[in-house]
């Protein structure tokens, strides 16, 4: 269970990026974080990953407070961020140096197989396409068996076909160990395709606005009536999160200024 308790973040320049975020995610749930640009989605993931410190509030994973990078939490950045001097296999195994060689090799091979890159193990990152590189970075995060996996717009730079393909790879990996997943996305269709719950955020300061459960069976058909209804609900919530900013923001802002 991952619990964010009244989590806030003020950057050193005074930017209030997150305002009292409360969120509880049971183990294995996939949560999509949606919201306009600048509403604090990346900030939220960086706090949970332990890369930045929260200003107030806490992050608790199965009873353990997270304040720095934690072995149970993996992060996939928006860009693949592969190490160019390591080949694909060594990139995937980057976080496994504590394991014995045979075990490490087996895990790397399996992870690469799962993302469909078994044949490319000995290539350099620069010899891969953008989508292949992002698959390597997903494999790198999964191979460490995290309890929580954070993905920050992992597919936003990819075309619709590649994205759909990668949704499949991501869900296949998730099926194996059922980690909790927090995935940031701008794409409502992506949320509907992947998530058990869509959480809509609102900017200035970043807050949680609405949560839409997506209790749909997998595999999902984006054209099914259920999916379409879910899409409409998320879009409506996004609309609301953008509009009443004038109504709510001044009083809120006045409070913390």
């Amino acid at each position: 269970m991952l619990t964010l308790d009244s989590l806030s973040k003020t950057y050193s320049d005074g930017t209030r990026a997150l305002e009292r975020i409360d969120l509880t995610v049971p183990q294995g749930e996939i949560v999509a974080l949606i919201g306009g640009s600048g509403c604090g989605k990346t900030t939220l993931l960086r706090l949970v990953a332990g890369l930045d410190r929260a200003s107030e509030g806490s992050i608790v994973l199965d009873g353990e407070t997270i304040a720095q990078p934690h072995p149970g939490v993996g992060l996939v950045f928006q860009e693949p961020r592969l190490l160019p001097w390591l080949d694909v296999a060594d990139n995937v195994g980057f976080g496994l140096s504590h394991l014995a060689k045979t075990e490490r090799k087996a895990r790397i091979a399996h992870a690469l197989e799962m993302v469909g890159l078994g044949e490319h193990a000995r290539r350099w990152p620069r010899e891969l396409s953008g989508g292949q590189q992002q698959r390597v970075s997903i494999a790198r995060a999964f191979v460490a068996n995290p309890r929580v996996l954070l993905l920050d717009e992992p597919f936003s730079a990819l075309d619709a076909f590649t994205r759909k393909d990668l949704h499949g790879h991501l869900l296949a990996l998730w099926q194996e160990t059922k980690p909790t997943i927090l995935i940031v996305t701008h794409d409502v269709g992506e949320a509907v395709a992947l998530a058990d719950r869509a959480v809509v955020m609102r900017p200035k300061p970043g807050r949680l606005d609405d949560a839409i459960p997506l209790a749909l069976a997998r595999p999902r058909d984006p054209a099914s009536p259920h999916s379409e209804a879910a899409t409409r609900r998320i879009l409506a919530a996004l609309d609301r999160s953008l509009k009443p900013a004038q109504a709510a923001a001044p009083t809120e802002a006045a409070q913390w200024w």
Binding site: A49, L51, G74, L83, W85, F94, A144
Partner: peptide, 25 residues
């Protein structure tokens, strides 16, 4: 700095960070 963050996510010590990321970079 983005590659250094990769090292941080995998909890490298300062020495490991120097050897596994800074040096090759």
């Amino acid at each position: 700095r983005k590659l250094i963050e990769v090292g941080r996510i995998f909890r490298l010590s300062t020495l490991q960070l120097a050897r596994r990321i800074l040096l090759p970079a």
